[in-house]
């Protein structure tokens, strides 16, 4: 009899606890969205299907969106999100785009007619210009979201990949080429073919 009472009491306590878990979780969601947003690349490109990085972060926090919808973040970004959320890594969902090397927009200034449409499209204020004046991209501020490309009526915006400079160059992972073995292997392959 005592045992039954104890079990019943335990069940009641757990029930009460469970009642308040969703409340606690709702509070956490905003914090979690912040944390997710901090990991997103902030290109504000909308390729994930949400109108910016913050809305996507909120959707992930709510469980509405998956973690593999951000092409600019790429594999690295998905790894970081998986680690934060304690989920399994998934490859990037190609419906949302493919991972590309970082590029910045470039306006062909001879063709630009000064319509200001790209300025309105740029989410990070990286384009300067005025009505009927030539526009230009502030390259160090451009996140490469490509949102300015479709609105341009004269197709004068192109995406140029960012070249590595001496200041941004990275040391390679130390790898040893096993040259002789590889060449003999290919040589025998060629011979047999």
């Amino acid at each position: 009899m005592n045992a039954i009472l104890i079990m019943a009491l335990g069940a009641a306590l757990l029930g009460v606890a469970l009642r308040y878990v969703p409340v606690k979780r709702k509070v956490d969601e905003a914090v979690l969205a912040e944390q997710i947003d901090a990991l997103l690349p902030q290109t504000q490109c909308g390729q994930c299907g949400y109108p910016g990085c913050k809305p996507y972060a909120t959707a992930i926090a709510k469980g509405e969106a998956d973690i593999n919808q951000c092409p600019p973040g790429g594999t690295d970004g998905i790894h970081k999100l998986a680690e934060l959320l304690g989920r399994k890594f998934k490859p990037l969902n190609t419906e949302h785009g493919v991972e590309k090397p970082k590029a910045v927009a470039f306006i062909d200034e001879a063709v630009c007619i000064g319509c200001t449409l790209c300025i309105q499209a740029c989410p990070v204020d990286a384009i300067v210009g005025a009505a009927k004046q030539m526009h230009t991209i502030i390259a160090p501020l451009c996140t490469g979201c490509e949102l300015c490309v479709p609105p341009c009526p004269v197709d004068c915006i192109s995406m140029l990949p960012v070249a590595v400079s001496v200041d941004t160059w990275k040391w390679q992972y130390p790898v040893f080429e096993i040259k002789p073995a590889a060449t003999t292997a290919t040589a025998t392959k060629q011979q047999s073919a």
Partner: peptide, 10 residues
């Protein structure tokens, strides 16, 4: 740093 600056501008 770049992403943080972009977020701020956005």
């Amino acid at each position: 740093e770049f992403a943080d600056a972009a977020r701020e501008r956005y």
